[in-house]
């Protein structure tokens, strides 16, 4: 898609335009693209709205971006605020600000340092977070590495390696706290119904059922039932109502 003959688009004022194919798109003011668009690189410092489908190689949102339809990115970096109303296919997603995805997200690697809200499912090979997430559907990832700094919830979690641990760096909390006042800091834990995976390590997790090959329960957990195949270890500071070797 590296087409050099496509024009750059740079907006400093406020305008509405139809979509199309562009090389680099830079928005310092306010732009609404009213139909599908394709570009190499999009950089939003102001406000951007895409009414149609978005397809881009690289994106960086420092301001605010609303995608009212499906999006496809090779890499997307959210430092500001973003909303996607359609389906998302983003190979490499990094969220340092705040993002909401109203439909399914398919990714290769997701890194969350800020806040993410997903109303449907999240599929990724790697899912790493040091921020906070709410996933109404299922989180399905090969490697799940959650460092808890706030409250995280998912309806269901499935994958190969799942590690949920409490974050240790306090300065980080302060940092996010100063940015997002709505962040819940006093309830630092993960809440879910079901966790299923091969190797599972959990801290400060509340779950109804945890199933896995090897299940290790660290401190601060409240789990109704653990089903394991090979290994089960439990910290004294956790409650597991029932455990069963299968």
């Amino acid at each position: 898609m590296k087409e050099t003959n496509n024009k750059d688009l740079k907006i400093n004022g406020i305008t509405n335009l139809p979509g199309g194919t562009f090389n680099n798109v830079k928005i310092n003011g306010q732009l609404t693209l009213t139909s599908d668009f394709i570009c190499n690189d999009i950089n939003v410092n102001g406000m951007f709205t895409a009414e149609g489908k978005t397809k881009a190689i690289k994106g960086k949102i420092n301001g605010s971006a609303n995608f009212n339809n499906d999006v496809e990115f090779e890499s997307l970096n959210i430092n500001g605020k973003s909303l996607v109303k359609g389906e998302s296919k983003i190979k490499d997603l990094k969220i340092e600000g705040q993002m909401r995805l109203a439909k399914n997200l398919t990714a290769e690697e997701i890194n969350v340092f800020g806040i993410v809200n997903m109303n449907e499912n999240c599929n990724s090979e790697i899912f790493k977070t040091k921020g906070s997430f709410t996933i109404d559907g299922m989180l399905n990832a090969g490697t799940i590495d959650v460092e808890l700094h706030g409250r995280c919830t998912a309806n269901e979690i499935g994958g190969e390696k799942i590690r949920i641990a409490k974050g240790s760096k306090n300065y980080f909390n302060k940092l996010i706290k100063s940015i997002f006042s709505s962040f819940n800091f006093f309830d630092i834990r993960l809440i879910t119904n079901v966790i299923e995976g091969d190797q599972i390590y959990l801290e400060y997790t509340k779950a109804s059922i945890v199933r896995g090959d090897s299940v290790e329960i660290g401190p601060g957990c409240e789990i109704d039932m653990v089903e394991f195949k090979n290994k089960f270890v439990k910290s004294e500071n956790s409650t597991v109502k029932e455990n069963r070797k299968i």
């Binding site: 599929n123 990724s124 090979e125 399905n140 990832a141 090969g142 499935g158 994958g159 190969e160 390696k161 299923e196 995976g197 091969d198 199933r211 896995g212 090959d213 299968i246």
Partner: peptide, 20 residues
């Protein structure tokens, strides 16, 4: 799901990978 994993010998991880 449980019966399936028992019967086929695959793990949760594999099942979720194939779903992904």
């Amino acid at each position: 799901k449980k019966e399936l994993l028992d019967l086929t010998g695959i793990s949760y991880g594999q099942l979720y990978r194939w779903k992904r």
